[in-house]
Write a protein that binds this DNA or RNA. Structure first.
Lengths: 399, 399
DNA sequence: CTTTGTTTGTCCATAGGATAAACAAAGTTT
DNA sequence: AAACTTTGTTTATCCTATGGACAAACAAAG
């Protein structure tokens, strides 16, 4: 059945528009909401009053006059409810409690020692329960739980496969729904990060954005028109397993020469291990294995071998980005994940490569940036997914 | 300024819904339109009457009774206007005149002998004028001209670069608008083909579809939610110039080892030329160069060398498709263009490769098909672009 | 202190569109 | 022939946005 229009739809549309205006521009007066939205004064007044009744908006005192009657200042009510955002990683559960604006109220971290599904689930549950206990009285309570997960999730929140955790076919969403009875949203980590960057990070002003999360693997989150693109069954964005070298080695995924074996943290560290003086450096740093922290430090200190490694990885990252850019033509590419800490040592080789391999795009407004949110991109994105399902956005599209 | 809702918007939405229902299900009664759309009888009656007034719909006589009053049958008025669809290729302009349903009324073909911009433009103009002369009296006349173009077009219809034609920075849309004073829509050939397949071909029932046009180059058209995805500036879908072999040879595009040098018609023919017995075969066929027709014929006759060539190209096509599928997770991939004539000799190696390299997707509803529309995909898609801008679709999205 | 003009927000009459229900028309079934 | 069905129109009602009138509150100029 097609979606048709009636008076209720009109109201829903306009109410969403008004709330969005307040959310984005608060403190704001009714009059300014009119100017922003183009809606009539009476309409805005009426809708604002309903929003006041439902506690999503509140009034503070009068504001500054600009030559006439003082405006009544409207605020978005951050405290009308809470959201929980989780970043489930192989060795760590990071979780945050946020208000409805995405401000972090409380955070907790739980190290993971095993891959055991039941163990991890218990810890996840405890982590969430711990945050829920920190909420104060509010009209709506915790409105939802968003989770960034390191694996492939279908559109019903089932984990199909999570190579690093060695999970297969786990109905995670159903399990959590049973335990918490509030909306649960589970997407893979990169997709959640993309959401975070769009809501709170560098992607605020970009409609078509590509977020590339580079840890031990590479995942991507595709934003189209400010919305997460999911694909037919929710499996889009698996760029880490696209072919980088047709003559490369077989990957466990069934493909050959996957990009992430040439451009992620794992191959970087592997190659670092082969550096002549790595043994000494490890001794000096008191580490048994090289890690990103050490490599960045060495690069800072002027270690040419390490800088060369970064440059090579950067080129490989750039090649993959060029491919993605040619397919998707985003206006912005954000690089996030663990690799992002090496921004300074990667940026030149990445941009050089893209400039050369996708020059048409580079010359036409393509921007490549590194995430400024760090690992918060994921938890914040997860929380914002939980929030946005509360404020379901009714939008009108004209093609 | 945000899009807000009012009563006129509601009417526009519902009118579109009703017209779509009639367009897709004609012959149909008002009562059945109610059932399909969920709209009230009175509403449908009113909207249908307006559509009758504007000549987009007409009534035929009464239909079969199903136990009560006979229904009045409504038809979509194909002849309310015309559309023109053009496929501009390097050596040929194909153009069609269609009715508003996309039925071809008239077609013409103009061989191109030069790359000269003015010469081609003259022939394009004449070709369109020739079709326009064939229109009969109608309420709306020719409602628009859609053009599939072999090159990169920006979102204002300027040709940025067309390597095969050796054009650069040609304001084609503006030129045509000046000459014809009706809406002109210009997209690259693959994107237009995708539109054609979605409207009239295998893609009718798929929301997320990927159309891959393989001629001498490879282009792709990405359909997301039945809409063409354009990207930030309209440059998406350039998959032919994504990296296939990092150790490959430099391409004129600035990249290295581009996919289309391994998986399109040109490399196929190039390799065919190296076959031991190709000279004899060319003599026998009376040709100076191998072409797709000859290769398909040889394969039919059991020529193992040619079959092997197809198999290799098929594998290369499959590798590229696997990459795209992992990034975009479409439910359907349609292979079109000149290469599609070799379906029988390619399908096995393509599916085998994808099955192996993107098994998760292959196991989850991914379909790979060859275009059945042939070169009509492009002209029909172009015409349908012209038509769809007439029936601008107002849609409501709830996220 | 007064006057003038501006800004903000509310209220009200009106317009337009969807809906439900009543109604009319034209069938079929019993 | 009577009763029921189906189709399509008409009517009364409801809902929401709009525009304008209005009042309140204020700044600036005199």
């Amino acid at each position: 059945m097609a979606v048709t229009g009636d008076q209720f739809l009109v109201k829903e549309i306009n109410k969403t528009v008004v709330l969005e205006a307040i959310r984005r521009h608060a403190p704001i007066s009714r009059a300014d909401v009119c100017k922003i939205t183009g809606l009539n004064k009476g309409t805005v007044s009426n809708l604002v009053n309903e929003l006041l009744d439902s506690h999503f908006v509140y009034e503070t005192g009068p504001g500054e006059s600009s030559g006439g009657r003082k405006p009544v200042i409207l605020m978005f009510n951050n405290w009308a409810g809470f959201a929980i955002g989780v970043n489930l990683k192989v060795d760590l559960i990071s979780a945050v409690l946020t208000d409805l604006q995405g401000n972090i109220i409380e955070r907790n971290e739980t190290p993971l020692l095993t891959n055991s599904q039941s163990d991890i689930y218990q810890k996840l549950k405890q982590s969430i329960e711990g945050l829920m206990a920190k909420t104060s009285e509010s009209p709506y309570g915790v409105v939802g739980i968003g989770i960034g997960f390191p694996g492939t999730i279908d559109d019903e929140g089932n984990v199909l496969i999570a190579p690093t955790l060695k999970w297969k076919n786990v109905p995670l969403q159903t399990m959590l729904e049973r335990d918490f009875s509030i909306p649960i949203i589970i997407y893979n980590e990169a997709r959640v990060g993309a959401q975070g960057e769009t809501e709170f990070g560098l992607g605020k002003n970009s409609a078509n954005m590509l977020y590339i999360s580079i840890d031990n693997g590479i995942g991507t989150g595709i934003m189209i028109d400010k919305e997460l693109y999911k694909g037919h069954l929710g499996f889009s964005g698996e760029a880490g397993h696209t072919t980088f070298d047709i003559n490369g080695e077989p990957c466990e995924c069934g493909n050959v020469g996957c990009w992430q074996h040439y451009a992620s943290v794992r191959p970087l560290l592997k190659q670092a291990l082969l550096l002549e003086d790595m043994k000494e450096q490890l001794l000096r740093a008191g580490k048994s294995q090289p890690d990103m922290e050490l490599l960045v430090q060495l690069a800072e200190e002027g270690h040419m071998g390490v800088r060369q490694l970064f440059s090579t990885i950067g080129t490989n990252i750039g090649i993959g980005i060029s491919n993605l850019v040619r397919i998707l033509n985003p206006e912005l590419v954000i690089i996030g994940g663990l690799m992002a800490v090496a921004e300074r040592w990667l940026i030149d080789s990445i941009t050089e490569t893209v400039k050369q391999r996708a020059s048409l795009y580079y010359e036409h407004e393509l921007e490549i940036r590194f995430s400024q949110l760090g690992s918060d991109a994921t938890v914040l994105g997860a929380a914002s997914l939980a929030i946005s399902q509360l404020f379901k956005k009714t939008r009108v599209t004209v093609n």
